[in-house]
Design a protein around this nucleic acid. Structure first.
Lengths: 189, 189, 189, 189
DNA sequence: ACGGGCGGGACTGCCCGTTGGT
DNA sequence: ACCAACGGGCAGTCCCGCCCGT
């Protein structure tokens, strides 16, 4: 077929976004647990079977965002001589900032769900932890223990910032909160 | 009444321990996903329905330990003038140390499961985060953001220590690893 | 014990009324299916097990009313030479009228539930049918088929009246509706 | 596509019939309550999960018959100038007659269950009532109260006839009983 | 790539029987 | 006798996997 792989991917992304939009709407309206996959499929005019082709689980429809897979690339783009902690902070600011600027409402809805629904909160933290491993793996012959402790502290700061933003119903500036949280890390002792 | 609430509670705890023992055995033998609730119920000689009276979900049979509810009491027992971070470290050392000394094998099995099975890993992290909130709530008029960032960093350290211990198949000394992780935090900057 | 059977019965009736009151309140607030027996027991400050001592099933808490067992007595009290249909209408007017005057709100709530929740609607109709059998059994050497057809027509009329009353949110006069429904039966052909 | 919707429907109907046959056999052998869904699924060589795809509840396996959805069509087919009561009687005779001729044994088993098992009796009456509403809805600008009273009387007559037929163990002629019951209605006054 | 059919496992709610305590 | 807690059994729902046909 003529359609290149990029084009196909783009199409898939569009569909995913459409499904996610319907799902988030329903979740906000009547709650996560009260919304079944069938409901979502109906709203998105697809078959339940197809839902699972785009999202492996119900949870993933909340977790997923379209810039997720770009994080590793962002990390590689940082100068080699930058301290690890610095690269890390920069990447997180970029990724989060992108989502924030593009559609703060959607981000807030997702963050709300991740804060409220236990399974989603759990998945969120798990994803954060996975990010740490990803980074730790890229730093050869380092004190693994040290790098990971650092990583946890950093993603922990982001988590705290997101929670504060959500508790405020998204009225405050997310990026400012992130910066304040990072700063708190510096004078931890 | 003759059967005080303590007595009843103790009985329930014994039953819970018995069910957990069978479940952990089966999980180790054939894997978490490959073991059904019915299998566990059979092995523990109870009805599947009764399983859910003791553990709300299949995950909880791994998460639960009998000293879980004691953590808040431990925290209260610390001297008032001790710095938060210090109390925190002490409590975690005590709680973990208790489980470690009492039954290192069981702890290792549980940690292994929590590291391997995604849903359990997620639950583990979620539980850690809940602990932070619990602590943060006990510290009035503080910079909430700061306290939470600190909390995340501390439990992150414990997580890293447990991971290292497990990666080593429990051969190294868990408490030493915890101390090293805490130390790494101190010269984070 | 000194307490005569009447006294005990009275006590049981009071308890039943108290439980029913809490249950109806909860049903109205959050719906029948969304209210569990445990919820009702909590609200009524009894154990779930005790609930079942007073009401055999969850449905019965809606079905029951305190004058239920008096219907046969009312029927016996009618003059012997009165036509069956006439006795029947009189008894139904008396029984319904009693409930209506004593607590129209409660009656409306119950009727609403019986109209809305399929299982309750079914139970309601079943109860009606049981009434017919009760009557039919009291009329010896009659054409059973005829008596029963008559009975169904009569209770059908009451059902229709109750439905109309409920559809009107209890604003119209129930007894007038009952009379209109009975009248409709007379010129059925 | 090759498999038209009709074809699929037909297939589903065949499966439903097969499941129902096994279920009715088991119910007759050992009783309704004593037969579990698992028993039925085993007998029909399907999974319990699949049972619920064909029948929403255990009760429905008794209630359902393959000509159920055709009733509205039958009603529409009656001449417009026919009196309501007459159309009604004709449709009921047709529908019941069809089931009766096609498989009187099955009908008898079902009727027996509906008469004996309270939940099924209740469902039966509920279904009758739903039929009335369906008819009442088709008759515009009529005295709704009147139409419904009439409807109840008519379906009541059918109920009585079915009961008599069953009490007789299906030896008498069902259609004759139905006619007698309808006749009883005519000289009700 | 989409849809449908089917299976399986987790989990919940109703309801009942039993035991043990007042 | 009354009642509370405990345990068991079954119906029913939802998520999610697999296979097949288009």
């Amino acid at each position: 077929m003529a359609a290149g792989p990029d084009l196909r991917d783009r199409r898939r992304t569009r569909t995913r976004l459409a499904i996610q939009a319907e799902a988030l709407r329903l979740f906000a309206e009547r709650g996560y647990a009260q919304t079944t996959i069938d409901d979502i499929a109906d709203a998105a005019a697809i078959s339940p079977r197809t839902f699972f082709r785009y999202f492996p689980t119900k949870e993933d429809v909340v977790m997923w965002d379209e810039y997720d897979p770009e994080a590793p690339a962002l990390l590689e783009a940082r100068p080699d001589d930058e301290p690890v902690a610095e690269s890390f902070r920069a990447v997180m600011r970029e990724a989060l900032g992108g989502l924030y600027r593009r559609d703060p409402e959607r981000l807030l809805t997702r963050v709300r769900l991740m804060a409220t629904v236990p399974e989603l909160r759990a998945r969120f933290l798990e994803q954060q932890a996975a990010g740490i491993e990803l980074v730790a793996a890229q730093i050869p012959d380092a004190d693994h223990l040290r790098v990971r402790v650092l990583g946890h502290a950093l993603v922990g700061a982001v988590t705290v910032a997101l929670d504060a933003w959500r508790a405020d119903d998204g009225r405050s500036d997310l990026m400012a909160l992130v910066d304040r949280a990072f700063a708190a890390l510096d004078d931890l002792s």
